[in-house]
Structure formats: C-alpha cells, structure tokens
C-alpha cells in the first residue's frame, strides 16, 4: 500500500473519529459518567434538520441552525431526567441511558423509517480531491477539517475561559471544587450542552457520504466509545492520540486486508490495550 494513502486516510478517519468522540470525552471528563445516550444526539441532530426543513417548511439553512436547539434541549434533558436522579447508582444510570437511546431511535424509526429516504444536502465539496496518489472524497476532507477546527476551539475554551477552567477543576477534583462553591448542576448542564455540538456538526457534514438511517447512531457511537475508552475516559490528549491510532488501524486494515474488518480490528485492539493498560493511553484522569 502506498504510504500516502495510509497517511491521508489516517488523517481523515482520525479527525472524523475525533469529532465524533469529542463530546463524549468531554462528558466522561467533566461528569465522570459514561453517557450511553450520546449516540442519540447524532439522530436528533440529523432528523431535526429534516423535520424543520421538510415538515415545517423552513429553508435548509435556517433548519440547520434551528436543529441545534433540540440537540441542546435533548442533552440538557438527558442530564436532568436521567443522569442526575441516578448519579449515585451508576448501573441504573447506564441502563436508563441506553433505554433513552433506544426510545429515541425507535421514535425516529416510527416517524421517519428508512423508506422515507432522509437525506441532507450539505455537500460543500464536490467530487474527490487528489493528494499525491491518494484520492479522498472532498466532503470527508472538509468534515475532517471542520472537526479539527472544533477541537482547537474546544481546547481554547478549556484553557482560556473561566467556565472551561471550572470544568477542568471539576474533572480534576470534584470534592475540592464542591468546597469552593462550584454550582455542579449548572456546570454539568453546560458541559452536556456544549458536548452535544460536535456530534451534531459531524453528522450534518458527513450525511451526504454516510448512509443515513434511524439506526446509524450505534455505528457512529461505537467509534466514539472506542476512541474515548482507548484515550483513557475523558482525557482530551489521550483521545486525540487514540483517534489517530484508530484512524491508522482503519486505514491500513481497510485498504490492505478487508474493509469489513475495520471496526472489528479496532475493537479487538482497543480491548487488548485496555487489558494491558486498564486506564487507557492517557495517564491522568482529568480532561486536559
């Protein structure tokens, strides 16, 4: 295999996975929980756009922007209705979160089954782009670039702003931050909401190249899980490294061996790494 192809696809896949996992990592880092309803955010975003665009009859551009309202509302709802009541009994919480995910999935499947043919014309770049010997769909490259930009923005948010600082403090020492009077509920809701933006952006951008159906949530979510887990549960540095490792694995396995084995091999490698390093790649249990 040409090394250029491997490099280019490692970059593209890695950046996309990073974008998918970003919100998940933030929740795992700040709240120290595992938001198993995260996959539903992809669905809520994509189908809200469709709802506003086709059913309400707004223009596509406005629908795109409006779609972030239900996404944020769903994220806040997840926290207030599921996470907070069960914060001390985590097995209940995880089961309840999967429950919510399945309910959302089924509701969407009820109203917009696959035969409705939901699609989002968000194609920005047409055709394929040639880089050396590798040719990549332009849209994928664009989505990768957007997801990288998002990472930079979020990092700046965590490093520069006061809210970001408080969130880092919570992730490092919840007890101490409680003592100095951090409003946990408010911070958790905010982080749930800001964590809901990346998956929405990613699904909207990759919708033209990724087949959209009501059950797409799990396949995207599984990448988010893999990357976050491999990166060490809510550490952004680890997540960035892990995303590109998974991207590299997928690029090489996909082109060299069998595209069907992409997810399988990354799952096996993740579990293998977790057995050797139970806490993932990153050392610290904090967000940055």
């Amino acid at each position: 295999m040409d090394p250029t192809i491997a490099l280019v696809y490692t970059f593209v896949f890695g950046s996309l996975y990073l974008g998918m996992a970003l919100g998940f990592t933030i929740i795992a880092g700040v709240l120290r929980i595992f938001n198993l309803a995260y996959g539903a955010l992809f669905l809520v975003a994509a189908y809200s756009v469709w709802f506003f665009w086709k059913d309400v009859g707004l223009t596509f551009g406005i629908s795109l922007i409006l779609a972030f309202i239900p996404v944020a509302a769903f994220a806040a709802f997840t926290y207030l209705a599921v996470v907070r009541p069960f914060i001390r009994t985590e097995d209940y919480m995880l089961a309840a979160l999967i429950c919510v995910f399945i309910i959302v999935e089924e509701i969407i499947n009820y109203f917009y089954p696959e035969i409705v043919g939901v699609y989002l014309p968000t194609k920005v770049a047409e055709g394929t782009v040639k880089i050396g010997t590798a040719s990549v769909p332009g849209q994928m490259l664009f989505a990768a670039a957007v997801s990288l930009t998002m990472i930079v923005i979020y990092l700046l948010f965590f490093i520069k702003t006061k809210t970001g600082l408080i969130m880092r403090a919570i992730s490092q020492d919840p007890y101490a931050s409680k003592i100095v009077g951090v409003n946990f509920d408010k911070m958790f809701v905010i982080s749930m909401v800001i964590a809901s933006i990346p998956p929405a952006m990613i699904i909207i951008l990759i919708a033209p190249v990724w087949a959209l159906d009501p059950f797409v949530g799990w396949s995207l979510f599984s990448y988010a899980i893999i990357v976050t887990v491999l990166g060490g549960l809510g550490n952004l540095k680890g997540t960035i490294i892990a995303a590109y490792i998974i991207g590299f694995i997928n690029a090489t396995v996909g082109f060299l061996i069998d595209p069907r084995m992409m997810l399988f091999s990354s799952l096996v490698i993740t579990v293998a790494v977790l057995v050797v390093k139970p806490k993932g790649l990153a050392r610290a249990e904090s967000i940055w």
Partner: peptide
C-alpha cells in the same frame, strides 16, 4: 485488572466484537 466503569466498557465492547 479493571474496575468500575472500565470493566463496564470492556464488557460492553465484547458483543460488538462478536457482532462484527
């Protein structure tokens, strides 16, 4: 080796592996 959430995650990934 693994505790709490990490154990949950590894075991959560097992069915996915078999599925694939």
């Amino acid at each position: 080796i693994s505790k709490g959430l990490y154990f949950v995650l590894i075991t959560l990934l097992l069915p996915f592996i078999l599925w694939e």
